[in-house]
Structures are given as C-alpha cells and as structure tokens.
Design a protein around this nucleic acid. Sequence first.
DNA 1: AACCGAGTCAACCGCGGGTCC
DNA 2: GGGACCCGCGGTTGACTCGGT
Length: 253
Amino acid sequence: MSITAIKSLASTSKCEGMGELRRGPWTLEEDTLLVHCVACHGEGRWNLLARSAGLKRTGKSCRLRWLNYLKPDIKRGNLSLEEQLLILDLHSKWGNRWSRIAQHLPGRTDNEIKNYCRTRVQRQLKAEAHSALLREAVRSCWAQNFSSIPPPHMFDEMPPWASDELRGVTSFVDRFAISSGGGHCSVNNAYEVDPWNLAPTSVLTPTCFASEHTSCSNNDVTEHSSWSMDESSDMLKSYMSGAESEVPFGDDN
DNA sequence: AACCGAGTCAACCGCGGGTCC
DNA sequence: GGGACCCGCGGTTGACTCGGT
C-alpha cells in the first residue's frame, strides 16, 4: 500500500472535518502511517511528525503508540519469572518509577510494568481483605470454643502481654493462611508460579472459613480437601493442647 | 445462551521539567 | 525572566476478554 493511499485512508476513516483529533483505538492504517513516518524521520518531534504524517492524533498519542506498541523491539507475551522477580526487586528499591524499572527490562514498556504491578497490588489488597475475613472467622470460632480465654488481639500485632500460648495460636493462623493459599499451592510452588504470592497474607482462598465448609487444600493435605467449621475448631483445639504434630499440614518453609 | 464480575491492557489525562525564542 | 511548546512520567479510565454461573 502506498503512503498516499494510506494517508487517504487515514484522513477519511471515521474522521469528519479537518482539524478534528481522533481518539480511541488506533486503526491499522494509522499504525502503518506512523511506522512509515518514524522510519523516515526517526523518533522525537512527535507533534511535527503527527502533522506531517497527516495523522489526526496528538504528538503525545503518537509517541505513546510507538513506544508501547509499534516499536520493533517490543516484547509480547507474559513476563518470565526472571522478569517478574526483577520487577519485584526494582519496585521494592524505587517504588513506582515505572520508566526506570522498564529500562532494566529490555523490550518491556513502563506501561506494561505499571499494569502488571497494579494487577498484583489489587490482587494483594483483595487477598488481605480475605485474610481479614479468615481472621474474623477464626476469631468467631475461637469465641465459640475458647470463650474463657480473651481473644481480642490475638491475630493483630501481638501486645507485650501476650502469652506464649497466644503467640502460638497466631503462628497457627499464619501457617494456616500460608498453607491454604492459592487453592492447591504450597508456599514453595506458589513462589515458582508467582513471586508476588510470597507475601504471607496474600494467599488466602476466599471461601476459607467464610462458608460453612472450607475448601482449603494444599500439597501436604491432599486428603483434607474439605474441612467443616467443627473440624477447623478441632484443629485449633488440638493445636492449643500442644499436639502440633496433629495439625494436618507441614511447615512449607 | 445470556449475563455478570474480574482481570487485562491500550489509551488518555494532568502535571512537571526542559528547551527555545 | 517568562511564555510557549515539547516531552516524558505516573495515574486513571474504559473497552475488551474470559471464566463462572
């Protein structure tokens, strides 16, 4: 297709009246036109480039389209584990400096990394909400079965006065949370699948404890795919009685 | 088959910094 | 010095897809 033909297409497609700027998704014709113009004139001077190409787009829009989608060395597809770990690492160092992080991941754009992290953060927040749900459910379970022992803060930050017994239960809850994470994921294989799942509160299944029957399972307890509320409280009781080994899952760490 | 909610991702917006006149 | 313009960054939006019901 000649450049004239492309220009003609771009100027007539869905755009009435000269001077009106097009918005929304880019058409194939616009993409082709932009690629051609960048090949001729190079990157930069985006407003000028947009005008000279006859594109009814802002320079900004052209730049974004080129950098995030049309540039030849853009990588497509899922992020590899190495890339995910690198993002995790760099994000912990630099925070939301997406472009800076992107510089260390050849072929990945800041937009892509930003979207990736946002998705993870949302997932994390949800998981934390689920975690709160679990804590509340266990709290309620506790209230029914261990009413003689005050439960109020046992799943929050441990107060100085907390007994070793209470600390032990917190440990139990934490281990439960980790072990039940991601449906069928132990901590180890969750890490292999997705390093962001390493955060201890990020791996709860939503239905754990929240419904009448739990649906927790993990690699260590394949035989225990369904625990009732009673069974859960039994587990708490046996744990409290010092029979830690009876808790039906091992230490994933 | 239709609907709905969650997840994904391309694109837009606002702002700040740099440069040029 | 300051106004206009350009560029890049990070935040946000909205369309689309897909899986579950």
